[in-house]
Simulated scan of single mutants.
Amino acid sequence: MHPLKIVILLVLFYLLYRLYISGRKKRLEEKGAEREAPAISDLLVQDPVCGAYVAKGQALVLRDLDGSEHHFCSDKCRHAFIEQKQK
């Protein structure tokens, strides 16, 4: 085999290798970007008793029989809401 053909083949393989690596790197970056998307717990909800805003993922949740949800900042506010509702 002629030495020029060997050099051309080596350059071609190197270019294909670089193309493969760059595509793989982009896919890994896209997967990382999907993981960094803001979670639903970053949304703020308002406590109906004291009016405080709490991250949805950290709030205490009370579900009514009709399916509505109420979010509370603390157990104290949740109990106060239950007492108000019973009256």
Score class of each variant (00 low, 15 high):
residue 56 K to M: 12
residue 47 D to M: 06
residue 75 D to W: 10
residue 70 H to W: 12
residue 78 R to S: 11
residue 78 R to Q: 13
residue 54 V to T: 14
residue 51 G to H: 07
residue 76 K to P: 03
residue 73 C to T: 04
residue 57 G to F: 08
residue 50 C to Y: 00
residue 70 H to M: 10
residue 46 Q to H: 00
residue 70 H to R: 15
residue 55 A to P: 11
residue 62 L to P: 02
residue 78 R to H: 11
residue 75 D to L: 13
residue 70 H to I: 06
residue 79 H to F: 12
residue 61 V to D: 03
residue 67 G to F: 10
residue 56 K to C: 08
residue 46 Q to M: 04
residue 45 V to F: 05
residue 67 G to V: 11
residue 56 K to G: 04
residue 67 G to S: 12
residue 45 V to N: 00
residue 60 L to Q: 07
residue 45 V to Y: 02
residue 50 C to D: 00
residue 62 L to N: 12
residue 64 D to H: 14
residue 57 G to I: 08
residue 51 G to C: 07
residue 56 K to H: 09
residue 45 V to G: 01
residue 68 S to Y: 11
residue 46 Q to G: 01
residue 64 D to G: 12
residue 61 V to H: 09
residue 76 K to D: 14
residue 68 S to L: 12
residue 63 R to S: 14
residue 77 C to T: 00
residue 58 Q to G: 09
residue 54 V to M: 05
residue 74 S to M: 09
residue 63 R to Q: 15
residue 65 L to S: 15
residue 62 L to C: 08
residue 45 V to K: 03
residue 66 D to R: 13
residue 49 V to D: 04
residue 68 S to I: 12
residue 68 S to A: 14
residue 66 D to A: 13
residue 75 D to S: 14
residue 73 C to V: 07
residue 73 C to P: 12
residue 77 C to S: 02
residue 57 G to D: 05
residue 69 E to A: 03
residue 47 D to F: 06
residue 46 Q to V: 03
residue 56 K to R: 14
residue 57 G to P: 07
residue 65 L to H: 14
residue 47 D to S: 01
residue 54 V to I: 09
residue 49 V to W: 08
residue 45 V to H: 02
residue 63 R to C: 10
residue 62 L to T: 05
residue 48 P to V: 01
residue 71 H to S: 14
residue 61 V to N: 07
residue 78 R to I: 01
residue 49 V to T: 06
residue 62 L to I: 02
residue 50 C to A: 01
residue 56 K to N: 07
residue 68 S to G: 10
residue 53 Y to H: 05
residue 48 P to F: 01
residue 51 G to D: 03
residue 45 V to W: 05
residue 47 D to K: 04
residue 49 V to N: 03
residue 61 V to I: 12
residue 50 C to R: 00
residue 65 L to C: 08
residue 73 C to S: 07
residue 54 V to R: 06
residue 61 V to L: 11
residue 52 A to L: 00
residue 75 D to N: 11
residue 69 E to R: 09
residue 47 D to G: 01
